[in-house]
Design a protein around this nucleic acid. Sequence first.
DNA 1: CGACCGATTGACACAGCTCAAATGAAGTGG
DNA 2: CCACTTCATTTGAGCTGTGTCAATCGGTCG
Lengths: 261, 261
Amino acid sequence: MQTGFAYTKFADRLTSIAELSDADLELLTAMPSAIGHFAPHEQLLRRSDRPTRCCLLLQGYLCWKDDNDGQITSIYVPGDVPDLHTIVVPRLDARLTALGPAVVAFVPHAFFHEISSSSPSLQRALQLLGHAEASCLRNWIINLGSRDSLSRVAHLMCEIAVRLQAVGLAKDDRFASPFTQSDLALACAISPVHANRVIQDLRRRQVLRWQSRTITISDWQALSRIACFESDYLGLRTHAAPAPRRPPPSIAAPGEIATAG
Amino acid sequence: MQTGFAYTKFADRLTSIAELSDADLELLTAMPSAIGHFAPHEQLLRRSDRPTRCCLLLQGYLCWKDDNDGQITSIYVPGDVPDLHTIVVPRLDARLTALGPAVVAFVPHAFFHEISSSSPSLQRALQLLGHAEASCLRNWIINLGSRDSLSRVAHLMCEIAVRLQAVGLAKDDRFASPFTQSDLALACAISPVHANRVIQDLRRRQVLRWQSRTITISDWQALSRIACFESDYLGLRTHAAPAPRRPPPSIAAPGEIATAG
DNA sequence: CGACCGATTGACACAGCTCAAATGAAGTGG
DNA sequence: CCACTTCATTTGAGCTGTGTCAATCGGTCG
């Protein structure tokens, strides 16, 4: 992980939801950052923390986990800044936790305030980021509230795949899955045992494979049908044929796997 | 409903989460608004709408209802502006629906842009509003994901009561409930039949009464215990003894009932 | 008075949970 | 390189909360 290029991940994410000018991208290059590495299930932020910097995820996955019951309320992929809202309210009501090993760039709150006041379009992009987050949360509610366990898991898989692809990862519908089945269970509000059975079901239906910490979606159409997945809510700008629509019929080159989601 | 005073509802809501100066409050008085009345289950906004104004709820309840399965993802009380986010992204992915009869003030997007650029503290207050919303959504996820039906319903009751109290309604832990048990079921992701059984259970436990479209919380302590309710996530400023903590031991004057939640 | 909508009740079915144990994979230290 | 530990996955069996279906009851409105 080249320290100097942390901002490019963020730029990828921003351009996935908003159109940015060269000047805007130039502003981003000024991003100061310190790199941090985290082990699986390690906590980046506790409820009692009052952070003065944000966590830009560079590699791996993060999630917000409720303090009491461990329920996962959202998952993040590289390019995301899970605690972006702390620039407004530095209070936390959950734990920011790593799912699998993760690499993070710490970015001072001040930086976001600066780019936001320097460029109206960047300010708007940050607002869009916040809006996309809320939209995701609503979708998560729908997932828990009105789908059975099979659809829930399928939906989460679809979402992760599309979000990874939006920042240039998960090519060939294949992505790293360093998280455990119990993590998945906490996200989908099912028991770990049942999570396992659901995955086996998905395997049996030949819609995905999950082996050696890698998930491969072998039948996107079937998976998204099971999940009732529609990617609109993610607010992505990719009007041109979203990658997942039509997976390349050719066999994926086995050498190239997204390393961190 | 005095047309001229729509802004005071919004002021109530804003001051419940942020401290505002007299100058800020003065700015709010300039709020232009047209009043609208809605029947139970009437739709204020459809997915295809591209609104140029926001809905400030004055009386009754509104909710966002998913287009496909009818799942309710959030509920609003007077003072709330459910579609505030449309000032940034005028796209919708759900239906804004009235729960019971509702009175709404339509406020042009421009007004929010104006106050936001005129006063940094109002801008911040609006941001806090957005943050509180996201916090609510996370809590809703936890409600659906890790509580049984009894706790879910209890939690929703607690939340509504506290939010009403934050804007000066639901005195004596009593508030209007013009919504149906099926509405409640859609919010808690349980079946209407089961919703009914849960309510009966709550009645049997003597923690609340629900009659003639009015809910009375008769034992707040028991209810919040069942619900595992902690109001922090609402982001309310009321540090001083939140009303629900200790309900007045005296019998509520039967004449005065909050008319609209 | 009839029609309609919401609340209520009962009987039954099943998705998903819990408990408990076995198996497998990965890392550690000798 | 092998014992040992630890953690994740897998499997089986029984239990239960909640859903579904279907009917009844009660209030409200035209």
